[in-house]
Design a protein around this nucleic acid. Structure first.
Lengths: 184, 184
DNA sequence: TGTACATCAGTGAACGCGCGTTCACTGATGTAC
DNA sequence: TGTACATCAGTGAACGCGCGTTCACTGATGTAC
């Protein structure tokens, strides 16, 4: 005899989605499946998110917000920012997977656009310390972009199983960062 | 009045799949849709590929084989190998997308495993020229892996629309490679 | 303290759809003699 | 040159399934008076 009102169904649906995606990929998400996971009628999710893309929009927005916090906590250091990116991807594989498949969600959602823009800024800002002194702004942008690509590529390849690092992935990422950028 | 026998339906189904994936993503592939694209009954694809995963296995294998050829043509040069990787991803986005989603296909297929192993070897081999003289083999592996991650990340971020390079993506990738690895 | 009412959250039945897969079949092709 | 036969490629009808979405509804909660 579960109570008619659920408590925090919205949050619990998102958590169920995260678990399903981490286990079986974003394609495995169905509103009916999530409803069943939460012990609720299959029409309940639509009440909170409108439609399936709405649910994934909420999930992606949540991901960009958390990623922004993680990057900000790195304090603008170039390598640490990249490692925070990798750590986020490893700790939140479901968010990471959805965030970079904009066809799954409402990519023009206001909150999402705001959160995504913040992560871009933080990634760009971290390169100030990394490019050689007196570098042009174009050069700085290239360093920032290269760092992002390196860490994003590493996280993606680990996530899809193309790479299986021994031990802590973040430690491997640190070595890769040094191998590419030296001591910057 | 199309002829009963089709000519090369297998090849044409794969081409239809490539087009559909490039346009609307791997999730948009359906055997019935591809059959319709080829003007053939909806049960025909199963005759050639057994099932949907079989079709995508063939597509991924084809991709790894072509990628292997492209990498080999770079002649073992570190930067050129990476750029060949990016060029392949840009020219064959559908193959690229499927290749790195092993949940879509039969990942233990023999021909696929062989073709995939070859690309790994070629990526690893290109780092011999890139690591400083007298580097340990571990160090060389790190350089190879970092190069792969950088180019894979760049290709992925371009593909998903997170990055929109001005002009030729390969030219941008070259600048990123230099920004990270210097003149290696 | 009690009552009326508005609002919100979740229900459950129904809809139509597109899908992968199966299967007995038929048309076309090639080969042996 | 003709005939029988095996093989292969594609057909079309049928199956069962799970899905997203809609909609009138009901149970629960909170607020105004």
């Amino acid at each position: 005899m579960p109570p008619y009102h659920h408590g925090d169904l919205r949050r619990e649906l998102l958590e169920a989605a995260v678990e399903a995606i981490a286990d079986r990929g974003a394609a495995a998400v169905t509103l009916r499946g999530l409803a069943a996971d939460c012990g609720v009628s299959h029409a309940a999710p639509a009440h909170h998110f409108g439609d399936k893309a709405g649910l994934l929009t909420a999930l992606a927005t949540d991901g960009f917000e958390r990623l922004g916090e993680a990057l900000a906590a790195a304090g603008g250091d170039f390598l640490e920012t990249g490692l925070a990116y990798v750590r986020f991807a490893c700790d939140h594989p479901a968010h990471f997977e959805v965030m970079f498949q904009p066809s799954l969600y409402h990519a023009d959602d206001e909150a999402l656009v705001t959160a995504r823009a913040r992560t871009s800024e933080l990634l760009g800002a971290s390169s100030r310390a990394a490019a050689p002194l007196g570098s042009s702004s174009g050069r700085r942008r290239e360093v920032a972009l290269a760092g992002w690509c390196l860490m994003h590529g590493f996280a993606s390849l680990v996530r899809t199983g193309a790479i299986t690092p021994e031990g802590d992935p973040v430690a491997t990422a640190r070595r890769l960062g040094r191998a590419a950028f030296g001591s910057r």
